[in-house]
Amino acid sequence: MSETERAMTLDEDEGADAGSRRDYKVPAAEKALDILEFMAARNEDVTQTELSLGLGRSIHEIYRVIQLLEGRGYLVRTKADRYRLSLKLFELAHMHPPVNRLVDSALPVMRELVGNTDQSCHLVVLREATVLIVLQVESPLPMRYSVALGSHFPVLETSSGAVLLAALPPAEREALVRRILASGEAGATRPEIDARLAAIAELGYEMRASLAVDGCTNISLPVRDHMGATVAALTVPYLPQKRARFSRESVLETTRAAASEISRALGAPEQAGRNRAIRLPAAQEQKR
């Protein structure tokens, strides 16, 4: 019997007990994932000592893993011997076929949208309990709204997130709402959340004052795939200004048409069926 066959046999024996395969430990991989997830949640560069303290592991435990991640291009070391995440995780996420196809289909439509609205726009997908910006096209006007590509925000802080949340199947939506409420980051009561999601489901979009930027109105619509499932949200953060030629209402209609055009490019039927959202695992998301 070869070493590979012996290893497979051992794995099968270990898996005889329920859940043992799921609990199988791979220490080096766990350390690498711990480092990536820890750094993804921070905005500033970190030292090895800060990593060690934050993870509750000794420097000796993580030193070689840090070197490996740096060598493979996942970490970047600064001149001050501090580390930050590179864009490699973000690049890997965009190599994922559904996201890649989504971006390719949306980009030409979004470029036309900014020209027809004088407003910036961005495309958003779900990432666990946050939303991730996967595409951004800026307004041609000198004063514009810009959001960093690859950044993420709490679901209910954005209209994009509310649109995506409203589109989830009931069981998934309920689980995510409960998780958001438990985190204390909802910013609203359960009845307020339910009313907001019900309004989106009835209207098919959300247009409301931004919860993050004063004077900005979010206009967000769902983008659907060939199964009629909601896979992304197309959002225009409307900024009123003298040089803007279009009203909020006209921008809403133009954005609605753009979302429909992207959906058609993805093969969406005229009548959308059940909803689900593209949800990126944490390891595929990269903050800027």
Rank of each mutant, 00 (worst) to 15 (best):
G267E: 09
R82Y: 07
P98T: 03
E157L: 04
P170V: 04
E172R: 13
Y24C: 14
P240M: 03
V236S: 05
V223Y: 00
L149H: 07
Q67W: 08
V125M: 04
V155W: 03
Y63Q: 14
R179N: 09
G71D: 12
E70N: 13
V236C: 01
E249H: 01
E192R: 06
E91T: 14
A209C: 10
G228S: 04
A201P: 04
A257T: 08
R173S: 04
L33N: 05
I62K: 05
E5S: 13
A258R: 00
E206A: 09
E138F: 03
T235L: 02
L266F: 00
F153S: 10
D225S: 05
L89N: 12
P98K: 06
M95G: 08
A212Q: 12
P140F: 00
E192P: 02
E253P: 06
L85I: 05
P240A: 01
I278W: 05
S20F: 11
E174I: 07
N218E: 13
L89R: 15
P281C: 10
R243M: 07
L33A: 14
E5Y: 10
L53N: 13
A166P: 04
F38N: 05
L126V: 12
P97S: 06
A182D: 06
Q119H: 01
Y24L: 11
V213R: 00
Q284N: 11
M143I: 08
Y205N: 09
A7V: 11
K242I: 13
L165D: 00
A106F: 05
M207P: 02
E61V: 10
A28N: 15
E3N: 15
K242N: 10
V131A: 00
G19H: 05
L107I: 13
L107Q: 14
I278N: 05
L280S: 00
L33P: 02
A7W: 09
E172V: 08
A129C: 15
A32C: 04
D214C: 06
Q286Y: 09
A41Q: 10
V103A: 03
E61A: 12
E249M: 00
M1V: 09
L51N: 06
L36P: 12
P154W: 11
E138W: 04
V65R: 10
G204W: 06
P269A: 00
F153L: 15
V147F: 00
T117C: 06
L221K: 03
L51Q: 08
L51E: 09
S105V: 11
R127E: 13
H122W: 03
S139I: 01
V155Y: 13
V134L: 10
G204S: 10
Q67L: 15
P169Y: 08
R57K: 06
S210K: 04
